[in-house]
């Protein structure tokens, strides 16, 4: 199955990105394809390399980057939502790309299922 994932919240205030990451990990383990993870609303905060949580906490930004590197998962950050929140190309962690909202609609069209995680 081809999956698209939409994440609407940042990596710390809400569990959304954690749940999405655990779901995505399980999906990859089962041999499914994740065609795109789209970050919208405060979800764009998952993309900033300046996130620096304490060393005894998980670093979701790095986890997503690693998933992109190891599994070729596309991590797309909405440009309009990112600009509002002060995130640009210079802030992006490895594997993340800034693009338009059309990428979310395309994911909905091309994926067999679109699964949303938010607040």
């Amino acid at each position: 199955m081809k999956l698209g994932i939409l994440i609407n919240e940042g990596p710390f205030t809400h569990q959304a990105s954690d749940s999405a990451y655990q779901f995505a990990t399980a999906a990859l383990k089962k041999g499914h394809e994740i065609i795109r993870v789209f970050f919208y609303h405060d979800g764009v905060y998952n993309s900033t390399k300046f996130a620096d949580p304490p060393s005894d906490d998980r670093n979701l930004v790095q986890q997503w980057s690693k998933m992109a590197e190891e599994h070729g998962v596309e991590l797309i950050v909405c440009v309009a939502a990112a600009m509002r929140r002060g995130i640009n190309d210079d802030a992006l962690a490895p594997g993340f790309q800034i693009s338009g909202l059309g990428q979310l609609i395309e994911a909905g069209i091309e994926a067999d299922r679109l699964v949303t995680f938010g607040d």
Binding site: H41, A80, G100, L104, I105, E106
Partner: peptide, 19 residues
């Protein structure tokens, strides 16, 4: 919250995809 405003932006973009 910002959800209503930003969701409306997605709706407007979706119109370009003839769905």
């Amino acid at each position: 919250t910002v959800y209503a405003l930003e969701s409306l932006e997605v709706v407007l973009i979706s119109a370009a995809f003839d769905q």
